[in-house]
Amino acid sequence: MKKAGLETIVGIFVLIGILCLTYLSIKLGKMELFGGDYYTVTADFDSVSGLKSGASVEIAGVEVGRVERIILDPKGNDQAKVYMRIRSGVKLSNDVIAAVHTSGIIGDKFIQLNPGGSDKIIANGGQIRDTESSVDLEELVSKYIHGKVD
């Protein structure tokens, strides 16, 4: 009886602890145990200034994936190559436009996808061709001051 009590108490304690740990690592830490329901697409941007890996990818304001990593394009054309993980339920047509946006004035950068009308769908590992770089607020202001806004 006494030994069973010991084991039960320790069991309950460990169970609660592991539940909390799982909550932290999967829900908050975004650790993926089953990585099957995503596919990866890439996109080349002239500038992704301020975008970080882990930023969200949105269509019409709804999150459909995340930025996986950002590297300098190995082809050497001074562009940034962004790898995105998109949920597999979301189909992207091959004329979709990827744009770097900011939420709020000082908010985080995220990627906004504007769907096109084509019937062809981008497969796993495919590339988004049309991109818009992040808007540099300082550059915009200086253009305005020097009167070069088109």
């Binding site: 460990v14 602890g17 909390c20 932290l24």
Partner: peptide
Amino acid sequence: ISLPLLCSIFDV
């Protein structure tokens, strides 16, 4: 064994 479990309980 106990400290990480207690720490995650503390966090949550």
